[in-house]
Design a protein around this nucleic acid. Sequence first.
DNA 1: CACTTGACCTGTCCGC
DNA 2: TGCGGACAGGTCAAGT
Length: 290
Amino acid sequence: MPELPEVETVKRGLLKLIVGRKIVAVKSDNPKSFPNSSNDIAAFLIDSKIIDVRRRAKVLMIDLSTNYTLVIHLKMTGQLVFVDSTSRFGAGHPNDSLVGNLPDKSTRVIITFSDESHLFFNDQRKFGWVRLIPTAEVPNLPFMLKVGPEPLEPDFTAKQFIARFKKRPRTSIKAAILDQSVIAGVGNIYADESLWGAKIHPARKVESVTDAELTELYSQVRYVMNLSIEKGGSTNRNYVNAEGKKGSYMDFARVFRREGLQCPRCGDEIVKIRVAGRGTHICLTCQLLE
DNA sequence: CACTTGACCTGTCCGC
DNA sequence: TGCGGACAGGTCAAGT
């Protein structure tokens, strides 16, 4: 999915596009995508207003005037695209958009606002979901209780980062950095990018990684995620922002999906291996196993 | 308990 | 061109 920078980009777009709008209709034809979207729930949503849009880890929260919140996880292929009343298309032009005429065959939920604009939840693989939860209960969701700290919070320190990893000494550094209970928001792209930046082989056991290396990894996680937010996120396949437009971080990626190309640091070939069950991109010269 | 693997889905790409 | 298999940005449940 969309990892932290992509979800943050969607959040920022939605803040501009939907806050203040009033819901007049909600439609979903896929129970897996919106498990509690019964007719009663849809009716309950009518006339509520959007008052805020928030993000925690890779989860989006759309707060409603009724003290309920739409909690949304995009998983691998989810999109949230706003379309104004004058168009049935995503706002992006063809060359920077993956979104065509909406709704399309991957549309799972449609929210209609009082001015005839729409918010489309598209999700090709149907892993993502939308749930309606009382706002006060959101912090008590199991995911919220176990998820680790936000890596971009100003008061999140390298010392805290290191301490979180020390709890998982026997697993690979890649599995640990992908574990949302260790650190929030890192997925496969930024795991590979930050491990390359810190010159750490992804298959190394956490206990073999020094504090100095973890400190560098902490800096790299923050660096790649901040850069990606600046570039509007990564569009590897499906990701688009709230206007239907692609992000450009992949133009700046140093190893992710660059197998066969040169390492930008040493010039050796980037290779793709498998670590923690995930495709993993590394420079064998820069990132030594021992 | 810590850790790894398979399942959830649809679509695309690659080799035969 | 068709077919089978591997793989895709994530997270759980079920296994070891």
